[in-house]
Design a protein around this nucleic acid. Structure first.
Lengths: 328, 328
DNA sequence: TTGAAAGCGGTACCAT
DNA sequence: ATGGTACCGCTTTCAA
């Protein structure tokens, strides 16, 4: 690999001049610049980012920390962030924390040691302490924090919407699936659903589920055992909804006639199910992009008016819900 | 952040000694080492990886290049690779090429510029040229190459197995979905299926599909229009299978009675469908791990006997196929 | 067993 | 407008 010294020699100038030309800093004569560019071409020179990074104590790298790369919601988030960063000529390096705090901490260290200029973190860890003494900005994604800027979707409204939509479509005995207690986003949507359902003239039950499919499957079985006459399920996410849908099929409930189901997230899967899943859409891609924008502002030291950005959610009508009755 | 000089000062020794202690190279008196360790503790010192990397021209970083992070097959691959690398104290940075050669090339540059010591590439790009002049080893994953070591699953056998299983379970008029021509892995499984089906006493058709769901959906519609009496579909992957399954539901075909479907990959989704999808399982996690192992050997300059490792695939019987008839 | 110093590939200050 | 050079934090050679 050619170095800046090779370029300097070839162009017959000093390294200082090459550096200036490279970074458009200070003066450099047009003719000189031309010479330098030629040398760069010929040597196929690319500055060594590690050396730059050592001196500047910063790189063009952004660390993106995902809680679980296998959950389809997060790759979508990642793409949003990536596209925005790419557009600003930053590079994104993804780390998969696998829901393990040790891994999360490891990745933060790795990022730090490689001089990232910012971190986007979508992990679900309660504990903020990893992010406390970092020398660069951190934006939380799909995770609410009062100590750090964050971007998330309106879970409260999401929960409410789900209830509203299932009720006006005629469900009378509803089961609410409640996601992991540790997850603030999961609890928000649950809280929203609770608030809304309390004001409606319907019966309802609450069950705990996990976001992992296997456990969701268990819960689905249990659901129909404990509440066989449930005619509407509001799931904690699309994966849980898929489990309920499958179990409903298995025991021969007709969807949406006997049972309506509403998921949460709108991951690609929801379109692929049969019937396609009605769900509350979180704008994952937009969330990623928005968080990236926010992080960039922070990196550039720009004033940001809103450090906590909440994005709207929407009800996506597919076919696990019936047509709405006369405005309910 | 504390530097090696701070540690040296605090321990009352020179930086050279600290460095030696840090890397277990050369002599360091036990007493001195103790002093140094104390200083490290007190200052919470962690060596600056960028500086190390600048001198050594290598880091502890591995680059993992994925073609499309949204396709659930790849995150699983990633986890396998990650776990193995983690165990060897290497860190994995993921790049998502998004099926775009420019992005692939960008990431390779980023990796290179940050002194990764190896790349694991699962992109589907035909073109190898990006990987030609790299100063560190590259292992291809889920991609066959004669120029680079690679790890992939036995597609030929996969295709054969799919045909064998669907035929012995009674399908007589089979439609073969053929994945993207550019993808060697997709073509292998197709070729395997062709070879096997030619020797069987069944009718069959061939249709092209994409791996993207939207296009697969189109193809599914077309499938039942053009070949309404098909009683068995061998899909190019699970996503295409999901599309076929959904369309079959829509037009009221009973699964598996009237129509059997076999997918390919065994992504998590396949379990979540109704009925759960019978499929040919590629051992994604193992593939990731195996590729990581191979890359590590290459990095350590160990002799590797097999540079092209083929992993076996297996038929996973779920419920889109019927029970096997008397050994067919 | 230890330390001084050169150098990895850049950047930026200070002269000229 | 250009060049010399110290320095970023670490490793390694060589001398002590």
């Amino acid at each position: 690999m050619a170095t800046i010294r090779d370029v300097a020699k070839r162009a017959g100038v000093s390294v200082a001049t090459v550096s200036r030309a490279l970074n458009d800093k200070g003066y450099v004569h047009d003719d000189t610049r031309k010479l330098i560019n030629e040398a760069i071409q010929q040597l196929n020179y690319r500055p060594n980012e590690v050396a730059r990074s050592l001196y500047n104590k910063k790189s063009r790298l952004i660390g993106l920390l995902l809680p679980d790369i296998r959950n389809p919601f997060f790759p979508e988030l990642a793409r949003g962030a990536e596209d925005e960063m790419q557009a600003h000529d930053y590079r994104v390096m993804i780390g998969n924390a696998d829901e393990k705090p040790e891994k999360e901490s490891e990745y933060i260290h790795t990022f730090e040691q490689h001089h990232v200029i910012g971190i986007l973190s979508a992990t679900s860890n309660q504990d903020n302490s990893f992010y406390q003494n970092l020398s660069f900005p951190v934006v939380f994604l799909d995770r609410i924090s009062d100590q750090h800027p964050s971007v998330y979707a309106d879970g409260l409204d999401g929960g409410k919407k789900a209830v509203r939509e299932i009720v006006r479509r005629g469900s009378k005995r509803i089961t609410l699936l409640r996601g992991p207690m540790e997850l603030k986003t999961a609890q928000d949507r649950f809280r929203g659903a609770m608030e809304e359902i309390s004001s409606k003239d319907v019966e309802f039950n609450v069950m705990k589920t996990s976001f992992a499919y296997e456990e969701a499957e268990e819960s689905a079985k249990e659901l129909f055992e404990r509440f066989p006459d449930t005619d509407g399920v509001i799931a904690s996410n699309d994966i849980a909804a898929a489990a309920v849908l499958r179990e409903a099929h298995r025991i021969g409930k007709s969807i949406p006639e006997e049972l309506q189901i509403i998921g949460y997230d709108d991951i690609p899967l929801s379109k692929w199910l049969y019937p396609p899943l009605s769900t509350i859409r979180q704008p994952a891609y937009d969330m990623g992009r928005t968080a990236a924008k926010l992080l960039i502002q922070l990196i550039h030291n720009e004033k940001v008016s809103h450090k906590n950005i909440q994005l709207p959610v929407a009800f996506i009508e597919r076919q696990t819900t019936r047509k709405a009755e006369e405005n309910g």
